[in-house]
Design a protein around this nucleic acid. Structure first.
Lengths: 231, 231
DNA sequence: ACAAAAGTGTTCCTAATACACCCATGA
DNA sequence: TCATGGGTGTATTAGGAACACTTTTGT
């Protein structure tokens, strides 16, 4: 008889949560979406949006459902599973195992964030000014992990394209890299590299702001592509 | 009142499993450790070792405990969380969410694999000759994912060192890369590259097999190190 | 004419590739 | 002396890094 399975069912006491770290880029800053908690623990404090996975839905489905329920955010560009945090004491209420996700959205100014049943407020925070978070260190740990992974993806993939609108200039793209690396990048070398990677194609439109009009580009594909190698 | 939490507790019907993909290198082949199942589902078929996570242990602890219980394998070199698989229909018995791990061991010939309470047999299989696995496609999916990740780690990190014994020759290392890439590598360039990365240091011993004795090296550190960049 | 941002080429240097022979040992 | 695997150097090429001025527009 399958004793281990029976044991496990008898002791059915684990909860699985999906937590979603949503990044966007706006006002020359990388921002993350947080919600103000309505319920214990941590009422009134900010937290990473998330909630419990139901028996009948996949992890991704749960993540997107929770995200919508808590922030009103519906259609995202990029979604990736990050890591599963399972320390025994993460949540004071019960043993909760959290599967975390990374979501990237572009054009945040077009998104209406709603106050909802589960959170009194949802708001973008610059990653340089994160408020105190509920759930002790555990949400902070998730956020730090997400940031690390995102920076890494910038170095090795075309993921930056998911933070830009359909049409963008090479300077827009460069600015995202500069923000991400927290460093200036040489314009000529940057353009040479990006164009040589064949990631974008020029349109026949320009965008006019201050100064000389800038040629607009679009992504050839937003499918994740990887680069480089050790040996 | 925290209604969502109460709902979740009321519907406590998810199980969390830890599944462990163990790789080693032997006889010029990459091998994976599988167990023959004693209980349903899939009695008598081979499966990736793993089992249910208990309420009082972390995910890593559960993974190592299950690994020991099912295969007798105790001390490993490298352990990394891989991915969490959560499709609704993965397991016919219940909703099971599987947190998968990658483990690398060296010197498999020194490891005694025991038949245990949970598995009738544990055995190394060449990744080129994987038998049919239980749990439909789900264990196969995990294995394919683990292999992809491992190959990737070979390209961008020093993880190969975790598949070698304390002392090894540069040819040993090269052979692992050749197996992994399924391709020949130029000896001079390989040595130049590895030495320039400052990953290993020469010992004052040689190893004598057929032909000229080979200088032995050891890893400067087995801590995971990463290399290269897109921009 | 000036301010503001876009756009563009060349030189230098480092690192990747391709390639073939001699060396130390045991049988 | 032969078979076996270990060990070594150079020339070519491709790509990364550093660097400053001209162009186009609005005001």
């Amino acid at each position: 008889m399958p004793t281990k399975f029976n044991d496990a069912v008898k002791n059915w006491k684990l909860l699985v949560a999906a937590d979603i770290v949503v990044f966007t880029f706006c006002d020359s800053e990388l921002k993350v979406l947080l919600v103000k908690r309505k319920y214990a623990p941590g009422v009134g404090k900010w937290a990473i949006p998330g909630g419990f996975v139901r028996e009948t839905e996949s992890l991704e489905t749960a993540a997107l459902r929770e995200l919508k329920e808590e922030t009103g955010l519906e259609k995202e560009g990029y979604l990736e599973q990050l890591y599963t945090f399972g320390d025994v004491a993460r949540d004071p209420r019960a043993r909760v195992i959290s599967v975390s996700f990374l979501v990237l959205v572009n054009e945040p100014e077009k998104i209406k964030l709603k106050s909802t049943d589960d959170a009194t407020e949802a708001k973008w925070f610059s990653v340089k000014k994160i408020p105190e978070l509920s759930f002790g260190q555990s949400h902070k740990e998730i956020l730090i992990y997400a940031l690390k992974r995102l920076r890494w993806k910038f170095e090795y993939t075309n993921v930056a394209l998911s933070l830009l609108p359909e049409h963008f200039t090479l300077s827009d793209l460069q600015q995202i890299y500069e923000t991400m690396y927290n460093d200036k990048v040489d314009k000529r070398n940057f353009r040479k590299k990006i164009l040589s990677l064949d990631l974008v194609e020029p349109l026949e439109q320009v965008r006019q702001e201050a100064g000389r009009p800038a040629l607009l580009y679009k992504a050839k594909s937003k499918k994740l592509k990887m680069f480089a190698r050790i040996y």
